[in-house]
Every structure is written in C-alpha cells, then in structure tokens.
Design a protein around this nucleic acid. Structure first.
Lengths: 341, 341
DNA sequence: GTGAAAGCGCTAACAT
DNA sequence: ATGTTAGCGCTTTCAC
C-alpha cells in the first residue's frame, strides 16, 4: 500500500496541507521546511494518488486518443510513429495517453459507434481532452466534440468546415508533393504523372495541388497525366499500367506509399527498373518505403513536431490561455532513395 | 458538468446509494425501482465518475503498456497490430490502455530509466496492472515488477528465469519456423538455409530450433547452412551474399521480415528472382512482407489471440482467481506469398 | 429493499 | 508560513 500525504506529513512533522503545498506551491514554504518535507517524500517514495488528485482538481492528466484499426496490406504505417511521438510529447507535459477504439470491433459501422468511445470517456470524466486524428471527409468526430464543448485538438485541418474554431495541427501535403515534384524536375524529368485519391478527398486534393503547382511553375503540361484511384496497392498498380501504356511518363508521384508500391509492382511486372527507367515517389516514408529493395523516395511528415505542437495547443486549451495560432501548418521533408534515381 | 449520483437519485426519487446499487448490484432493487432508476440514468446520460469510483474501489480499470520506440528502417511492425488488438481485448473486459514510454526520450539508457515509467504509475496507483512486452535477454522489467508484487502479465516467456511465477502468453516461434521450413520442404527444397539472430537471443534460438527440427525430421543436413547476424536489413543482405556465394541454398528462412527483406536485396542485386530462383521466408507478416513486389512469405503471429489471452490472464490475476494456466503458448500461421514459389 | 453515515486521498479556502 | 475545515463523487458498512 503506497504512502499517503498523511504518512509524509507525520514523518516530516508537519500537517498534510503543508506537504500538499510542498508539492504544488513550494514557494509557500520556508526553505527549511520544504527541505524536510522533500526528504520525507524521497524516503517514502511518495507519489500523489492520481485518483484523489483527479477527483479534487477535476484534471485526470490523461489525453484520449482513438486508435483506428491497423490497415494491413497497405503501407500506411504513420500511426505507429505518430503514437510514439505523442506519448513522448505528452510525457514531457505531464500527460499520459489513454487509448480507445471505435465501434464494436469490426469495421466502423455507424457514426454513433465511432462517437461512443468519446462519449463514454467524456461522461465519465476519464480524460481531460482528446487528440483527434481523422478529420477527413464525412468524419463526424470534430463537429460532435465541438457541439459538446469537449476540449480537443485535431491532427488535420477542418477541411469541411473552415468555420470550426478548434485548434489544429497539420502537415502541408501540397508543399510536400511540390517538393517531390520539384525534385523530379531537377533531375530532368518532364513528363511527371500523378496518381492520387478520389476527388472527394480533401487531403488527396491538397497533395495533388502540390504536383499541379510544381508542374505549372515549370511550364509543363499535365494533360492526361493525372489519375484518381483508391488507396490500395492494386489500384496503384492498375493506374501505373494505364499510364505506362498511354502517356508514358518518365516519373510518377503518388498520394501514398501504398499506391507507390503498386507502381513498383507494375514496373516489376514489366521488367522496368524504378529510378532508372521510371522514377517513383510516395508519401509517408513508411517502413515499406525505407526497406523495399532499391528504396522508395517518399515525402516524410514531421510527426514528432506534429505531436509537440498538438500537446502545446492542448496545454494552452486546458489552461484557457489565449492560443492565437488557431492552426499550425508544418512542412514535410523528402526522403530521397533509389526509386527517384 | 456531468450529472452525479445525487442528480440521478433526485430525478428517480430515491437515495444516492440506491442508484449506486442499481448500477453495481441491480438484483438488490425491486424491479419497479430499478426501472425508474435506469430511466433516470438514461435521461441524464449518467456515467459514474471514474476518479471517484477509482478512489473508492482502488481500481482504475486502466492497464499500463510501455510503448517501445518505433523502429525505422526495419520491417518490425508487429507492435502496431498488437496494440490495436490489445485495445479491443481490453475494451471488452472494461479496461482502457494507458500508454507510457521508457527513459527520457532518446535510446533506453539505464535500466532505471526503463523502469521509471512503471514506478511512477505504480506509486501513483494510476493503473491496475501492466502488460509487459519485451521479455528478452537482459530486460529487467519482469523481475523488477515481480519483486514489487506489481500485477502484470507478459507477452513472452520468462526465458531467463523459468522460476518466474507470473502469467505469460507467447507465440511458439519454433513451431512457426518449423511450419515455414516444412512448407519449403514440401515444395521440393533440399538445401534450406537459416539466417537468425545472435546466440544470446532466446527468441532467436527458439525460432532457429524450428528450422533444425524440420530439417532433421526430413533427414536433411544443416552444416554450413546457418548464419547468425544482427536484426537489420543490411545484415540480412550480407548474410544472404555469403550463403549464396558458398553453400548456394535454394531457400532461405529468416528470423525476421527485416532480415528477409535483406535477402530480397541480395537477390535483386544478383538479378535473381525470389520464389523462382531462391525461396525466401520471413517472420512477422509485416506490412512490408504483405506489399513488397512479389510478396514475402512470412510467419504470422496470432496477435489478436495473444491480446485476448493476455487480458483474460489479467482479469484472473486482478480477481485473484486461481489461474492454473501459468503460461499460454499459441501457434502461428504461415502467410504464403510469391517469395516461396 | 432502501436510507444514513463514513471515508477513500487529495486540494481550495480560510483561519491562525 | 502553517494548520483547520470541508468536500470532490463514489461505494461500503450497517440500520431500518
């Protein structure tokens, strides 16, 4: 049974309140007393009981994070790195991460299932705030949380609803793809194709805009060079097949590593060599991009920085500090590997 | 501000304790009263305050999990799938996962750093128990927790110390590799090489034993066919180079997908075709194995089942139920892809 | 079957 | 600068 405030107080020869002050308002104590109390804390290995502190202060020092199901048969592995970065950033701010999942195990059925995890934690005052990760099209999480005045910050811009007033942190996908496209232009490529997602995807449109921007700046036409397909390996492969059989690009930029891997499949089937015959660039710097034979050049999101900014925003939010920067946009980098030369 | 027991009691026209009973001991109430209370709970959207309940019952319904740093430039991605499986399994048992990290950010320096996260959570009674994931050589976590009588279950056998009495769940790596080797034997391979880890790794030795077992059962010699190297892509590539230049195996089984990808590198550099010229099998069924062009045959750990068993053991432990099965050993499966024919 | 009283460990407000 | 009092929301005796 861990020691309590009373145990420390007795040992130090002071009252419980003085021990509490020694922890939360050390400047209130006379140095001599403070030292004595700290010695007692040290000797007993005392740590404040979190439940009691939580009950009293109404702060759990817990941040809720919904963990979306791990996607297999894709190269979308950003979550792993992100969660770890978040654990680190939270720890430095004195917070822990509380994980929960969406609906009843299987695929996210209704919007209610998706929101149930948030609702439970909110009503039971289990967490101080949430970090929301999927802000893409049709996701009701942010609006639902806003309506309920639940404290949260989002990884991802409020694409659908620019009037949303919650703090957010995002990565500038357009800038990342522009970087990738410029990299290919610099290497002498002229016909650079784009494989992206459906038009309804804001993130997909954003990333595509980077390609368009770089191509326009270089005075290169883009007609027939863009395809919109699903975010799967097979879709990427099929899209590459179509492009290679028609417009014959010398380089292909993709909205994701998953699609880029599909392109690698297509090249392999044709006996073409990535980087030598056709350059390929992906997005997310997944483990797959890092270790696939030859290496896949990819846009890397600064997830560690994203985590730090998210926690910073959260601290400001919970402290009700004026947080002027409503949104923070971070710039990705490019990890250059064999697939681009 | 969420409603409290008192609010529900007032609305239902009963006392607070009756509401508490309605939640925790429904059979104590007369059906009519119970119904009225439940209606009030429903109408108010009442959820017990977790901090208060925790303080009173000394049960946080939180499970602590240390998240080891995500390894980049490897194919070791089992953690992602495992954490998600654990969140699901915990949820069904009424628990949430609390994430923490090891030392002060950077590489795990001392053993004390590693243990500090556990210590903090334990002393502050933040979690009811831990799930420990790295039980490999030289890891002090389990012994430290045992000494402190901290409730925990381990994913991984107590290799070093078979006298350890904590519950554990593990995957039979030897059986998995045996499965893989048998699969290759069935396809007509005779010279099947092994690329594994250092002799000091219990897990590595276990997996290797599966290869030895299958080879012995088939009456195949193994001389010169085994290599011990680090768990990196480069080490796997170099080991494959050595093997292909010497004993010329027709198939290579690896202790990890990371090493197996290294083998793929070696084959690619030699213009050899995985599966046609040389068969390759990895371990972990990582995203890399799943999407790499051609596909990498790999041993797949039943992580969802592992998570379920871990939580089951934890429940028994916390309920002080007699949990006779000290350890549970689960059998992996083989995901067959192009690299093995 | 239901209600009254006590207390988990802590901190905020006040008194000294 | 330190001690006293009260109460956060819940469950656990123990009366009735």
């Amino acid at each position: 049974m861990p020691p309590t405030l009373a145990d420390v107080a007795e040992r130090a020869g002071v009252s419980r309140q003085t021990v509490s002050n020694a922890i939360n308002n050390p400047d209130l104590l006379r140095p001599q007393t403070l030292e004595r109390v700290q010695a007692a804390i040290q000797e007993l290995g005392y740590r404040p009981n979190r439940a009691a502190r939580h009950l009293r202060t109404r702060a759990s020092h817990l941040i809720g994070l919904r963990l979306p199901p791990a996607q297999e048969f894709t190269a979308n592995a950003a979550m792993d790195r992100f969660v770890h970065a978040l654990v680190e950033a939270s720890r430095e701010a004195g917070y822990h991460l509380l994980l929960f999942s969406g609906g009843p195990g299987k695929p996210e059925t209704t919007a209610e299932d998706l929101v149930r995890g948030y609702d439970d934690l909110l009503r039971s005052t289990a967490v101080d705030a949430f970090i929301v990760t999927d802000t893409y099209l049709g996701n009701p999480q942010t609006r639902w949380l806003s309506e309920r005045h639940a404290p949260f910050v989002a990884f991802g811009r409020p694409w659908e609803d620019p009037d949303e007033t919650h703090p957010w942190v995002d990565v500038d996908g357009a800038a990342g793809v522009e970087l990738a496209t410029q990299h290919l232009l610099d290497r002498g490529h002229e016909r650079i194709a784009w494989i992206g997602w459906a038009e309804t995807s804001f993130i997909g449109q954003d990333r595509r805009a980077g390609w368009e921007r770089a191509m326009a700046a270089a005075g290169r036409p883009t007609d027939g060079l863009a395809v919109r397909v699903a975010d799967t390996v097979d879709a990427g492969r099929e899209a590459a097949d179509v492009l290679l059989d028609s417009v014959r690009p010398s380089a292909i930029v993709c909205a994701s590593d998953t699609q880029a891997v599909g392109v690698l499949h297509s090249l392999a089937a044709r006996g073409l060599h990535p980087g030598r015959d056709v350059a390929v660039v992906g997005f997310d710097d997944s483990q797959v991009a890092q270790v696939v034979p030859g290496g896949l050049t990819s846009v890397r999101q600064p997830l560690e920085q994203v985590a730090i900014e998210l926690v910073r925003a959260l601290e400001a939010l919970l402290a009700r500090e004026p947080y002027d920067a409503r949104g923070v946009l971070l710039v990705p980098t490019l990890a250059v590997r064999g697939s681009s030369g």
